[in-house]
Computed example of a mutant assay.
Amino acid sequence: MHIRLYTKTNCPLCEKAKAVLMELQADVPFTIEELDIYEDDALLEKYQLMIPVVELNGEEIGYGMIEKETVRKRLRQAQKS
Rank of each mutant, 00 (worst) to 15 (best):
M1P: 05
M1C: 08
H2D: 14
H2Q: 15
R4F: 10
L5T: 02
L5I: 00
Y6K: 05
K8W: 09
T9H: 05
N10V: 11
C11F: 05
C11A: 06
C11H: 04
K16P: 00
A17I: 02
A17M: 02
K18S: 05
A19N: 09
M22L: 15
M22Y: 12
M22T: 13
M22S: 13
E23G: 00
Q25D: 07
Q25I: 06
D27R: 11
D27A: 08
V28F: 08
V28C: 11
V28E: 12
P29T: 09
T31Q: 14
I32Q: 06
E33V: 05
L35A: 00
D36I: 00
E39I: 00
E39A: 05
E39C: 00
D40K: 10
D40S: 09
D41L: 07
D41R: 04
D41K: 03
A42R: 12
A42M: 10
L44W: 08
L44S: 08
Y47G: 00
Q48Y: 11
L49W: 11
L49P: 02
M50Q: 14
M50D: 15
I51R: 05
V53D: 04
V53Q: 08
E55K: 09
E55S: 03
L56M: 11
L56R: 11
G58V: 02
G58I: 01
I61S: 11
G62A: 15
G62D: 13
G62H: 12
Y63H: 15
Y63S: 14
G64A: 08
M65G: 00
M65T: 04
E67M: 10
E67L: 11
E69W: 03
E69V: 03
R72C: 04
K73P: 00
K73S: 14
R74E: 15
R74P: 00
R76V: 13
Q79Y: 11
S81Q: 15
